[in-house]
Simulated scan of single mutants.
Amino acid sequence: MFSETVKSKIKKFDVYRKLPQDLTEPTLSGAFVSIIACAFMTLLFLTELAEYLKVSTNTEMFVDINRGGEKLVININIAFPRYPCGLISLDAQDIMGSHVVDVGGSMKKIRLSSDGKFIEEEDLFEKEHKEESGVNLQEIKKQLDNKEGCQLIGHILVNKVPGNFHVSSHAFHNQMHSIIIGDNSKLDLSHVINHLSFGSNKDLEFIKTHFEEGVLNPLDELKRIRPDGVRDALSYEYYIKVVPTTYQTLEGEEFFVHQFTANTNEYSAQGMPAVFFRYDLSPVTVKFSQTKESFFHFIVQVCAIVGGVFTVAGLIDNLLHTSISKILRKRDAGKLG
């Protein structure tokens, strides 16, 4: 294909000149250095491969400018082992001054026996609409006497502004005296927060399985139980700082949820007890983005490993070979003593 003249000219560009095999000889020191170098290159290659396959997460913060007109989803699963479903109502109020009884969303009341067993399930909002026309006092008194409990499960939709939602008996304010007959100790809002989070439950479940960053449900499994020796009705307050958070996958898919931190307080209620969850939204959004090392960067690193180890091993081999040769020459000359 090529003439001999062209071939000879092309050969001048060869920087990998070959020595005839009969001009080289293997050495024991070279063999040891080669084995160690290969093992070291393999170790470094595996380390770099693990780094290439690993998915890391970058974090950034910026001011949230898309807050107006949005709804905040609050997921709730709270058990009240000493408070009957007949007395429980859920209200919400925000900083705009609007107070909403029967907030939007979906919420179930689950009646529990004194030993925590399921009795029946009711729709919280539908139940409260029915009770606006009249309260079944006998049924509520029966639930109190039987020491029934109640569990709230579902979600509510509130304006994306600072506010609060609270569990209480405000809907039965006018009838409360005839229900408890002056004994406030019956109103025990001891509770267990099985789950509380802000954002779509579907998105939250995905994030938990694909990300390790973020504080999405710090109140889960928290218990607030009134001591047996306390007769006063206690109110509980949770002060929650909500931080809008975006999670972005390697494929570019984004999930918008909220992290939060919380402090708690409890005190003797002057009137009817309640459990308040007061939330405030941070103006700063946190974004977690998944990243992965590029293939070209991986190739560059592998080349650096092979070339670097090969070069260093060659220097070490030359040093060993030269040293051993000098020692052997001195021994043959009888100069080692």
Results as ranks from 00 to 15, higher is better:
Ser325Val: 06
Leu250Trp: 05
Glu266Lys: 14
Ser200His: 07
Phe296Glu: 13
Ile207Ser: 01
Ser185Ala: 10
Glu128Pro: 00
Val300Asp: 13
Val73Met: 12
Glu126Val: 07
Ser200Asn: 14
Lys330Ala: 15
Thr47Phe: 13
Ser106Met: 12
Tyr238Glu: 09
Leu152His: 04
Cys85Asn: 01
Ile110Asp: 09
Leu336Phe: 07
Leu234Glu: 05
Asn263Trp: 03
Ser114Phe: 01
Pro218His: 06
Glu70Gly: 02
Val55Asn: 03
Val215Pro: 06
Phe118Arg: 08
Arg82His: 14
Leu319Trp: 14
Ser34Glu: 14
Met61Gln: 11
Leu315His: 06
Leu315Asn: 06
Lys142Gly: 13
Leu204Ala: 00
Ile95Asp: 13
Leu28Phe: 11
Ser133Tyr: 12
Ile36Pro: 05
Ser235Val: 05
Ser113Tyr: 02
Pro273Asp: 06
Glu70Asp: 08
Ala31Asp: 14
Lys208His: 09
Val73Cys: 07
Ala333His: 12
Arg67Gly: 15
Met1Gly: 12
Asp220Thr: 12
Ser190Leu: 08
Val161Asp: 06
Phe310Leu: 15
Tyr247Cys: 02
Ala37Ile: 01
Ser34Phe: 10
Lys160Thr: 06
Asp203Phe: 00
Ser29Trp: 04
Glu122Phe: 10
Lys160Ser: 09
Val158Asp: 08
Phe256Ala: 05
Ala31Cys: 11
Gly337Val: 09
Lys141Phe: 02
Leu46Tyr: 11
Ser200Glu: 07
Glu4Trp: 07
Asn58Tyr: 08
Leu23Pro: 01
Val167Pro: 00
Asn174Asp: 14
Lys142Tyr: 08
Val161Leu: 12
Ile240Val: 11
Lys54His: 08
Asn58Cys: 04
His170Phe: 09
Ala50Arg: 10
Pro283Asp: 00
Ser169His: 04
Leu53Thr: 03
Asn164His: 13
Leu49Thr: 14
His258Tyr: 12
Cys150Met: 06
Ile193Gln: 00
Ile180Pro: 04
Gly229Arg: 12
Leu144Glu: 11
Leu19Lys: 08
Leu234Ala: 02
Met107Ile: 10
Val300His: 10
Gly86Pro: 02
Asn263Arg: 15
Val167His: 00
Glu60Leu: 10
Ala269Gln: 07
Ile316Gln: 01
Ser200Phe: 01
Leu187Gln: 03
Gly337Leu: 08
Lys335Phe: 09
Tyr279Val: 08
Ile316Leu: 12
Thr291Ser: 12
Leu49His: 14
Glu266Gln: 15
Ile180Gly: 02
Leu319Glu: 09
Leu157Val: 06
Gly163Lys: 03
Met107Arg: 04
Ser8Val: 03
Tyr239His: 15
Ile10Leu: 09
His129Pro: 00
Leu281Lys: 00
Cys303Arg: 06
Ile119Phe: 10
Val215Tyr: 07
Thr245Ile: 00
Phe118Glu: 11
Phe172Thr: 07
Asn265Cys: 07
Ile110Ser: 09
Asp232Arg: 07
Lys160Val: 00
Asp123Lys: 04
Ala171Met: 13
Arg17Tyr: 08
Phe206Cys: 03
Glu121Trp: 01
Leu112Asp: 03
His173Pro: 01
Thr246Lys: 10
